[in-house]
Simulated assay, not measured.
Amino acid sequence: MTVPDDRSPEEIAAQRMLADPDAIRRRMEADIAAVEALGRGEVRLDPAAGDEAVASAVRSLADRIGFDSPIEAATMSMRHLHELPVAERGPGSAIEAYLTAASRTIAQGQLVGNRGYPEGHRWLTFHRTAREAAGITVALEASVYVDADGSVRLFHFHWPTERPQTPVYAFGGTPERYMDQALCDLRDHETPFDRAMLMLLANALGGPGTTAGHEQRAEIAELVAQRRGELSAYVTQAENYALAVRADRWYAACLYRSALETVFENFLGGAGFSLIDMQEIQDIDEELDDALPEVTDASPAAVPQGIPPHHWWWNTAVR
């Protein structure tokens, strides 16, 4: 009889690397080769050409702009790939999908920042709204640095962090549609677990709880339990975000914490204690309680509409 493996893909990969120390070197070499194969080498332009000319040049070079090094590109793609809509996470490698989405944001997004400095360098910021499933959209931000010598590099690409004036996620569907999508996502183990969590959160926004009936709640609980390893990885990611609140990750930390609260309250109940160590949730809350009061760039506009009042972490961030 085959025993189901409830570990997350991340846990499986990590354990394989621990069992084979040389795997880390091979993975790094593969990541570097993947970045180099994309042809994103050194890119230059005239930094003194003026605001409009520099912005136009950056857009025209979007498919060639990369991070400062292949290792940084690989690291950033692994760290932020799950912030992209599922449809933009593939096909191909994670690095290719991530950089392709970044290029699309630079080429097609709205230029929201273009600031030059006396020293000769310049920062440009682009925002793009991308479609997710079930009537949900997500805002993405690409920041490009132009050095005084004309060299251009991608500085970051992820959810907006500097006082976003619109919701990062906009929920334009219906609770029923979100629930249907959540069930589809959980049944399909090829669909990233984080999107199912997003859909379950969306289903509960603006109301006293989920719109799911008893049978749907029971199926959700069963499906989440079947993907226990991915739930554990989601909790770990929530904790990582909480630890990075002071590094502009306040929105991500609050979003993940709200998704977990929604799933525990509306679907898992006491079963949650058998799936994860609740001490981890307490650790996350303690970190949020400690770090969120120090946040200075949180914007109320970024908070999803309809977040339950008892999700105190949002109010703590945007006080």
Rank of each mutant, 00 (worst) to 15 (best):
I136F: 02
G50S: 05
L154T: 12
T191E: 11
G173L: 01
H189A: 14
G92Y: 06
E72M: 11
A49T: 06
S60R: 14
G109W: 15
R131G: 09
Q165I: 09
L124P: 02
A55E: 11
A130V: 04
H156G: 14
C184I: 05
D68C: 11
L124N: 04
R163C: 05
L186S: 05
P118W: 12
H80C: 05
T137C: 06
P192S: 08
D68F: 10
L124R: 01
T166A: 14
A62L: 09
T166I: 12
R153E: 05
Y98I: 13
L99H: 12
R153N: 08
T75Y: 10
H82L: 14
M78A: 10
A53P: 02
A97L: 05
G173H: 07
E162A: 13
D149T: 03
Y169V: 06
W159L: 08
G116M: 06
A87L: 08
F67G: 10
A74I: 14
F67P: 05
F157P: 01
R177L: 15
E96A: 15
A148M: 09
A170K: 01
Y145H: 15
L61Q: 14
A107L: 11
E119N: 07
A48D: 13
A48G: 10
I136S: 00
P175Q: 07
E176T: 08
Y169W: 11
A170Q: 11
G66Q: 10
S60F: 00
P85R: 01
N114W: 02
A142T: 06
T125I: 12
H121S: 08
L186D: 04
R131H: 11
I71H: 11
A134S: 12
Y117I: 00
S143D: 12
R115S: 04
V54K: 02
R177F: 05
T137F: 08
T161I: 03
L84C: 13
T161K: 13
T174D: 05
V112E: 03
Q108E: 15
V112C: 03
D180Q: 13
Y98C: 14
G120T: 10
G66F: 08
V168E: 12
M76Y: 11
A62Q: 10
N114S: 14
M76E: 13
Y98M: 12
